[in-house]
Structures are given as C-alpha cells and as structure tokens.
C-alpha cells in the first residue's frame, strides 16, 4: 500500500495542480489570473511528463563512464521545448490582455461582457 502511494504520489500532485489551474481558468474573472492559472496547468503537464521519464537509481541522460542506467531523454526534450514555447504563447496571451485593457478599459470578464451588451 505504502509503495503504491509513493509510486503514484507524483501523478496525483500533477493532477491536483492541473485542477487548481483549471479551476482558476474557469472560475476567476480576471484575465491575468486566468493566464497564471493556465501556466499552473502547463507546469502540471511538465511535471507529469518528467515523472514518467524518471527511472529509479537512474542518472541524468548525459553519458558518463561507468553509468548504466539513465532516465528517459525523450520526455526531457519534449518538455524543454514546451517550456520555451509556453513562455512565448503566454506572452501572446498577455499581449491580448493589454489590448483588451486598451479597448475596454478593464480586464475583468464580467465588465467586458456588460460592455459588449451595452454596445
């Protein structure tokens, strides 16, 4: 039982973080907060992938004399690029937020909806 919990704790925390990010996106009205929620979600996915890549007693995937067991390099590659793509897309989202602020004068979702109806 203990082994099962230790063996799955990583996944559960990833899912917990995913849900925290998801909740921030769907329940909060502030656009900056929504983007931060999206980022939390994103980090949880990174965590899940890296958890899958880990091998017990393995070492970092850089060739060293006398080391036999390495962790899986493929998820590392995927996540490494995903992090940089993530910051670029976050910047795009933030740019949209700035434009919304300039057009509507607010970054709260409710107020934007109200303004849309009165137009």
């Amino acid at each position: 039982m203990m082994d099962f919990i230790i063996g799955h704790y990583n996944y559960w925390v990833s899912i917990f973080l995913m849900m925290v990010g998801f909740y921030a996106v769907i329940s909060r009205g502030n656009l900056v907060k929504k983007i931060i929620g999206m980022n939390v979600f994103q980090v949880s996915v990174f965590l899940l992938y890296i958890s899958i890549s880990t091998v017990e007693q393995g070492s970092a995937p850089i060739f060293t004399e006398g080391v036999e067991l390495y962790s899986n390099p493929l998820p590392h590659v995927l996540i490494l690029t995903a992090i940089v793509v993530g910051v670029a897309t976050t910047a795009l989202g933030l740019a949209l937020v700035v434009r919304i602020k300039e057009a509507y004068g607010t970054i709260e979702e409710d107020e934007i909806h109200e303004l849309d109806h009165t137009l």
């Binding site: 990174f46 890296i50 890549s53 590392h76 490494l80 992090i83 940089v84 910051v87 933030l94």
Partner: peptide, 22 residues
Amino acid sequence: MDAVDVAFTEAAVGAGISTVLM
C-alpha cells in the same frame, strides 16, 4: 528527477522571463 536540462530551462524561463512579462 534527473531532468537537468529541463530544470535549467524552467529556472531561466519561469522565474526570469515569465515573471518580467507578467
């Protein structure tokens, strides 16, 4: 978790660039 390259990227991007942009 032995993902040194990923840790490196996340430390530079997440704590550096994202924070500044936000």
